[in-house]
Write a protein that binds this DNA or RNA. Structure first.
Length: 225
DNA sequence: CCCTGATTCGC
DNA sequence: GCGAATCAGG
């Protein structure tokens, strides 16, 4: 198979999104893991945490134990304690960067002008028990919310769609296929996905043991549509 | 052994 | 440019 624009786009997207070369190769089909890696490098994609490189150590001081610690090495690593943690992302920042495992809540700070935009946040879909429990907008999620898949990359424009902060970026189908597209629904305020897909993207962390093996993933999985 | 990514090198 | 073979760490 050849590297068409689409295939390259998918490669980039997934690579930057944190997918492994194997997964990418698998998704693209017709190529080996090595092919993907080779191509990624040729494209100039940056290396990602590789087992090999990560372990790279500077063999300098052959000091088995005591580290007399030389005056200065390079730059003081971290003499700094740990000041104030960033003042909680004050504003709503759809930040494509998924640096926040848990999207900041579109808190109903101003209950004034936002009548009933019940932004169904991560907690909006908490398991409704047998009966009553119902807290539409829990200030604190029932359990820890984790991204179903590390997807920091979805913000990418992708030649395919007019993605904006207003439309759901959930991928429909498989990249590279003729009908591959994005959801496009109106987003759940504060999230990159529509309400429905927020439910898929952010899942309540279930107690150990009761977890479902197959975490839903935008790519790869059995057709989602 | 399985996985990972990096690199090499003949094509 | 491509990717199998190989390398090397986890």
């Amino acid at each position: 198979m050849s590297w068409t624009d689409e295939r390259i786009a998918t490669l980039k997207k997934m690579w930057e999104g944190g997918s492994t070369a194997s997964q990418i190769a698998d998704e693209l089909g017709g190529v080996s893991r090595n092919a993907v890696i080779g191509k990624a490098h040729r494209l100039g994609l940056k290396s990602r945490p590789s087992p090999v490189k990560a372990a790279e150590k500077k063999k300098a001081a052959p000091k088995p134990k005591p580290a007399p610690k030389p005056a200065a090495k390079k730059a003081a690593p971290r003499p700094v304690p740990k000041p104030a943690p960033a003042p909680a992302a004050a504003e709503t920042k759809p930040a494509p960067k998924a640096d926040a495992a848990i999207p900041s809540q579109p808190l109903p700070n101003k209950t004034a002008d936002l009548p009933k935009i019940v932004s169904i946040g991560p907690g909006g879909f908490q398991r409704q028990g047998p009966g009553d429990q119902q807290a539409p907008i829990p200030p604190a999620p029932p359990r820890r919310l984790v991204p179903a898949k590390p997807s920091p990359e979805i913000a990418d424009k992708t030649s395919l769609l007019d993605l904006s902060d207003k439309v759901c970026r959930w991928p429909m189908g498989h990249p590279g296929e003729p009908d591959f597209h994005f959801c496009g629904e109106s987003v759940n305020p504060g999230f990159p996905y529509c309400v429905e897909h927020c439910g898929r993207a952010y899942q309540a962390q279930l107690p150990r043991g009761a977890r479902r093996p197959p975490p839903p993933l935008p790519f790869g999985g059995p057709r989602v549509r």
